[in-house]
Nucleic acid binder design. Sequence first.
DNA 1: GAAATCCGTTCAGGCTGGTGTCAGGTTTCC
DNA 2: GGAAACCTGACACCAGCCTGAACGGATTTC
Lengths: 225, 225
Amino acid sequence: MPKRESALRVLLIEDDAILGEAIHDHVVMQGHGVDWVKRLDEAALALDAVPYELILLDLNLPDGLGLNFLKTLRRGGNQVPVIIVTAQDQVAMRIEGLDSGADDYLVKPFDLAELRARLSAVARRYAGAPNPETTLGDITLDLTRKSAERAGKPVDLTSREWAVLERLLRHRGGIVSKSDIEESLYAFGAEVESNTVEVYVSRLRKKIGADAVTTVRGLGYKAGA
Amino acid sequence: MPKRESALRVLLIEDDAILGEAIHDHVVMQGHGVDWVKRLDEAALALDAVPYELILLDLNLPDGLGLNFLKTLRRGGNQVPVIIVTAQDQVAMRIEGLDSGADDYLVKPFDLAELRARLSAVARRYAGAPNPETTLGDITLDLTRKSAERAGKPVDLTSREWAVLERLLRHRGGIVSKSDIEESLYAFGAEVESNTVEVYVSRLRKKIGADAVTTVRGLGYKAGA
DNA sequence: GAAATCCGTTCAGGCTGGTGTCAGGTTTCC
DNA sequence: GGAAACCTGACACCAGCCTGAACGGATTTC
């Protein structure tokens, strides 16, 4: 059996139907999983739900500027590789894009072979270590489906619960403060004053096991026992 | 489920002798079976006789336009993967090709390695489960006739219902947003603001089973349970 | 050409489940 | 013991979703 590059979970943010479909199909044909959204708010929702390994980001979207989205993403600590897809072949934009935290830049109409090459590059990076974020104790997490399994039994998690869990897993081994988690729940601005985080940690423990999250009194929480 | 590449039955539609021979030899060397025709009427005959798994289509043929051929093919419900081979490296043509139902696009003179890669991709798709897009739970779908069977009993679907179902199946395993489905219903531009998609999903579930479509709250739908 | 049928669309009302808040209880630390 | 920090069951609210019903246009039938 030939060596296979690992499949990626790709988030495609593109509002143009034709171009989007072309990209989508092409990426799927490479064996990757693609979720295709057309607006930034949908993208934010999807990102809350799924830990993508690659984002393809169009810069001209109906509901906002892609660059700001990217900046916010990076500011939130998200390190996922981002490839910008845009028609604007201007040096200034290109520099600004890379400066905002993009890993690469595709100018449309681009050669689909080029897209394939970059996908492969990212996929190779992800091959090897088989998703260290997918197990936690006796729980198996299916990160693409927002579901977890525990002793064979499927467990459904809501998007908020996943947001908390994901935050904890990204800092695996490290302590995550409550305010940190809170910020990942309520995108910048929408302050919430209560013990929401405590409630979600409680709900999480109920669903995936009490020892999945450890309380560090006075500091926050961390994943695992 | 391990994926195995299988030999493909390939139909090559190309009138240029030299280029045709190059492609033909190359594909044969990959272990696939190739029928080479030079005119569209011959192609139509061949397609009637053999269930090809892949078509390599040149756009400049003596007896007609390849694009029209492709459109007719798709209109007839034929879902076989089509890779367009042409010298015309123009964005408009490229988009029109993909829009007409092509799966991919090769600009000649192209890299033969690229051709090989795409062949492999298609072959991989065909390996393993035979036609994964034609069954869904206990339902059998005849994609060429736009009809479905459930436990032997035929189920009639309207064109809109089919559009929704097809969209879900094309993205099998992935989540399809409502706006995504909506755009596949109302060809680009004709915006509709309502819960049309919800209604069709509801009707679909009624006809082919409630578990045929799963709701992913806040994100969209996906095929299967 | 009238009647019947089918289909697409819209609307309204009902339902479900995610979310945030609170109160009272439990644990931890000094 | 007492205070601070944390846990968790309960509950009300509401966005999102489902679906029956009805309307109008298109097509078919007689």
